[in-house]
């Protein structure tokens, strides 16, 4: 029997092995440094600046700016708009993703393109569409005026514009997820006697819940922060058709910088909360994906 002895001179450290795929340390340091500097300049600095400006006249002035009736009304309107736009897009997003991921039909790629449309056009144009449709000189303008319905330069128009601009967010999050999962589990449920609704609640929804939540968070953040489209269809009437982003602009234009930044800090806070939630959900999603990778063996499907 042969024995193999591996000996190393006492005290001598083994030679460090550099990863064959890595860059040299200097290149790595420069690249990392550049990335960090860019992040600091475009993300951290503005954040600090917003908070600094908001508190420039002291905490009392900060609180007063937030508690001011117009600001409170803007906050309420922002919540209302998001409160309508997000659920509508939730239903639309799930339905669209379901239909695209689980069925084959003609015009499917056209539908996918249409879903992306609100991302492709400028938000200002999106707003203009609604002015052209429902404005005084728009297609339905005369009819709406006759029936005394106000859409443009009023809350309904702002809800419509926000819903339109945020509509791709949930659908786009779900489509690749549902496509990847296929319909094996749904088929198994149906064979076992489940009805359509039971299949959706007990099988489909639990499988997409983290992706759905992720989409909801993004959609909500965008709905609350939307400026361009909402600005076009809003009448800019203080206390009536002003959302938080629009209110920030008005205050800024009136040279009340501290108040403007105070309101802006609310939106910043929303962004930070969104970021934290997003990270938590992403982490959950990764964990589930890891489990999923072990459960389903996504080898090529043999079309026999």
């Amino acid at each position: 029997m042969a024995t193999i002895a591996i000996t190393r001179p006492a005290g001598a450290a083994p030679p460090a092995i550099r990863r064959a795929t890595g860059e040299s340390p200097a290149v790595r340091r420069v690249l990392t440094g550049l990335a960090l500097a860019f992040l600091g300049l475009t993300l951290v600095l503005p954040l600090v600046l917003v908070l600094h400006e908001a508190l420039a006249k002291g905490f009392a002035a900060y609180l007063a700016a937030i508690r001011e009736p117009d600001a409170l009304s803007a906050a309420r309107l922002t919540l209302l708009i998001a409160g309508v736009a997000v659920p509508v897009n939730l239903v639309f997003g799930v339905a669209a993703a379901w239909c695209i991921a689980k069925f084959e039909f003609r015009g499917k790629s056209l539908l996918i393109t249409l879903i992306d449309l609100p991302f492709a056009v400028s938000p200002v144009i999106s707003g203009m569409i609604f002015v052209l449709l429902f404005g005084a000189h728009g297609w339905f303008g005369a009819w709406l005026a006759d029936h005394d319905v106000r859409i443009v330069f009023a809350v309904p128009g702002m809800v419509l514009a926000t819903t339109f601009v945020t509509s791709p967010l949930i659908a786009r999050e779900l489509i690749p997820l549902m496509q990847e999962q296929g319909s094996d589990q749904e088929e198994a449920a149906i064979v076992l006697g489940a009805r359509g609704w039971q299949t959706f609640w007990r099988v489909t929804l639990p499988n997409i819940k983290w992706g759905l939540l992720y989409g909801l968070i993004l959609c909500n953040a965008r709905a609350m922060g939307e400026f361009g489209a909402v600005s076009v269809v809003s009448g800019h009437i203080r206390g009536e058709t002003n959302t938080l982003p629009l209110h920030v602009e008005i205050l800024y234009n009136e040279y009340s910088f501290a108040a403007s930044f105070a309101v802006a800090s609310l939106l910043t806070l929303l962004a930070l909360v969104t970021l934290a939630l997003k990270t938590a959900v992403e982490w959950q999603q990764r964990r589930q994906a890891l489990e999923g990778a072990e459960t389903s063996v996504p080898t090529e499907r043999i079309a026999a």
Binding site: D184, Q185, E187, A188, A189, V191, R202, V203, P206, N207, E291, G292, T295, S296, V297, P298, T299, I302
Partner: peptide, 11 residues
């Protein structure tokens, strides 16, 4: 029906 890739409900 028994599927090739099991199709178990993973949750």
């Amino acid at each position: 029906f028994v599927f090739q890739h099991y199709a178990l409900f993973r949750h």
